[in-house]
Design a protein around this nucleic acid. Structure first.
Lengths: 125, 125
DNA sequence: CGGCTCGTTCACAACCCTTTCACGGGCCGT
DNA sequence: ACGGCCCGTGAAAGGGTTGTGAACGAGCCG
């Protein structure tokens, strides 16, 4: 688990999270997230721009070491992506790093190297 | 295999690699690389400016002696070049030294003279 | 109790990475 | 220029990893 400074405000792109208030905003609008979803998002935001291993995300958010077959992180990443994409389809916030974990960084959805993983051929925009 | 100092940062031109974070950046933007690709790039960066024999690259990145017919290094050099060229077409980072191996050095691409290889006896450029 | 939300787990599909093969073109010594 | 080795490059197979929808159960509340 991770401390929440009372006044902590995490930002990335149009995203804003106030962990102490259990509140996530996108462009000023409230984004309804469950506890796990918000904790996971906060953990990623605090490590913005870095690749965060699953093990670190799990131990931070779930408070226990990750068991080898546990897919919880993936499932919640999926839920986060779904909710973020519904509000901001033009941005990708969560990026997969194959074999390691995830990285949070607001990037335009389509240009250049697409996406989520390390795709080989991205098409010529 | 090669040690990754936790804070090691490798640079060449607009390229920046942080092996410990599994992260490669070009002009601040993330360059999506697979594990092998990143390891190979890091190995070249650590030997920047020198001609690195295939045998050395293979044993460093793959952790085993190079077998005589193994083309893995060539294939991954190709993948690296492709990804680098897509982001920075004006630069050539990886140079072939016929019969020996590869050398990493950021150099402007010659628009009219496509000299792909470098002879050993060419000396420094 | 009945309906709801949330968290967990499962199963299958989709995808990515690595390795290997094959073909063609390049480079070099003769 | 020739022949042979070397390198560039696309493709494909195999296996591991991640995406995704759905089922299940616990807790909450009317």
């Amino acid at each position: 688990m991770e401390l929440n400074r009372e006044d902590e405000v995490l930002r990335a792109g149009d995203l804003e999270v106030r962990p102490a208030d259990h509140l996530a905003l996108v462009g000023g609008r409230t984004l309804p997230l469950s506890v796990r979803e918000l904790d996971l998002l906060a953990a990623l935001l605090r490590r913005q721009g870095r690749v965060v291993p699953r093990e670190e995300l799990y131990s931070t958010v779930w408070g226990a070491p990750l068991r080898s077959s546990d897919r919880s992180v993936d499932v919640y990443i999926h839920k986060l992506r779904a909710k973020l994409a519904r509000v901001q389809p033009q941005y990708r916030y969560v990026h997969t790093h194959f074999g390691f974990g995830y990285r949070l960084a607001p990037e335009l959805s389509h240009p250049f190297h697409t996406d989520v993983t390390n795709r080989q051929q991205d098409g010529l925009q």
